[in-house]
Nucleic acid binder design. Structure first.
Lengths: 239, 239
DNA sequence: CGTGGATTTGATGAACATCAATTAGAGTGG
DNA sequence: CCACTCTAATTGATGTTCATCAAATCCACG
């Protein structure tokens, strides 16, 4: 008896030839295979609602998506902000535990739980992504439970600076004298507030305060220039 | 060519005989196999520290464990409270992203990443557990970001009432007239506060308030009686 | 140019943190 | 068994931060 029943197609076989550890290549092969259904969505469109039967798993191929939960009285908490490459829609139970809504124009790939369940490499790829996501959920718990409003907003802005503001960030490259960055906010103040556990007004005040202190400059509404990244990073509470 | 390289031992083969979907049986076989190293720990002992090289994965076989993160100035956020059967120590990177500390006497099983990486069934089992954990992290984000102090404490107490207080809770069984429960708190006020994003004093005041209102009764320090579970549950903000 | 929603700003209030003191409980040694 | 000690927990007084309520301003879009 062989283990053929573990794989529905040639993906793992190809991977075995390429070296077992290259799960990312297997994943790329899988999601680019013609049987994967692709979807395009407009900004602020719901993908699924909290409580809906969890019948699909998605990969975000482009754009950004938020996941949020609601309390019966309407209070909202955005629990994840997803970016290209992120996976969502996995559930333990029969129903989604949160609502998924697009923040921008979005390209999705709808995956089949069945394909994934029978491939070791796909499982491993997903595992890797899940562990990363758990770390970012831990970080977010720290933000929500223990950071001040200003620290939350600074941390939020730092999210969008690639490669900076993480635990292992070592500051700017040494040979660089200007350490600035331009970031793009695709979320409204309400969405940011619901992500940070604050109100619109508190978020707005914190951003104004950063402007006043010269730590950020607003160019054209939702484009923000950070003149000295390290200065902003120091306000996150993490360094 | 077969897929034999996907499995280091007979676990999956046995599972195939028993039906592919019974990943829990495969897991049970694995963790009970003699090669799994077992550990016993006393209360309030560190298992690993944030930043340590992530060289082990653990299954909590008995007792309870908390995971927490620290900010440089000492602020602490407890990000998970683990109970029997929970897995922890998975990391995306090279190092643990939080500290693990026992809350009670604890029995652990130290697992090998290598064993798991080559078994589809074990991967799938872990995936299931991770999805459940992500849901509880979402729930916790809601608590930290949007609930009042009283709602947080009520939610915390409800955690320890088996089968109640969850989203799909339908209340007590219909044929029952007394709906009470006894719970055991194994955490200090400081640990509870750091889990709920509050201070010791606020937690203490909330508990006193619940006592005053007759919603709980303290028996012998860390044993709490809940006379009418639904009454407490109503304070969680979820119904 | 005008309209309507989003954002900002201001004034006030409530919830929770902080600081300080007291009490309760668990463990210890006489 | 009972005082003693030490820490955890409670309670009280005050302060700070952020939420709430209200108004003004900005900006995108027709």
């Amino acid at each position: 008896m062989t283990y053929v029943e573990h794989s529905s197609d040639a993906l793992d076989l190809a991977a075995a030839g390429a070296g077992l550890t290259d799960v990312e290549a297997v994943w790329a092969d899988y999601v680019n295979s013609p049987k994967i259904r692709k979807l395009s969505l407009s900004p602020h469109e719901a993908i699924f609602y909290e409580g809906d039967p969890a019948d699909h798993i998605y990969e975000l191929a482009g754009g950004s998506v938020m996941l949020y939960k609601l309390l019966p009285d309407g209070r909202r908490q955005v629990v994840e902000i997803l970016k290209e490459g992120d996976l969502f829609g996995f559930q333990r139970g029969r129903n989604y535990d949160c609502t998924a809504e697009t923040l921008s124009g979005v390209e999705l790939r709808a995956l089949n739980r069945r394909d994934i369940d029978v491939s070791l490499s796909l499982q491993r790829y997903i595992g890797e992504r899940m562990f990363a996501k758990m770390e970012s959920l831990h970080e977010h718990a720290m933000l929500l439970g223990r950071k001040s409003a200003m620290e939350r907003v600074a941390s939020y802005l730092m999210r969008f600076v690639p490669g900076r503001g993480t635990a292992d960030c070592t500051g700017p490259a040494e040979d660089i004298e200007v350490d600035d960055g331009m970031i793009e906010l695709s979320m409204t103040r309400q969405e940011i507030a619901d992500f940070l556990g604050l109100t619109i007004e508190t978020v707005s005040r914190a951003i104004s305060e950063l402007k006043r202190r010269g730590l950020i400059r607003i160019e054209k509404q939702d484009r923000i220039l950070i003149p000295r990244i390290c200065n902003l990073c120091r306000l996150t509470g993490m360094h």
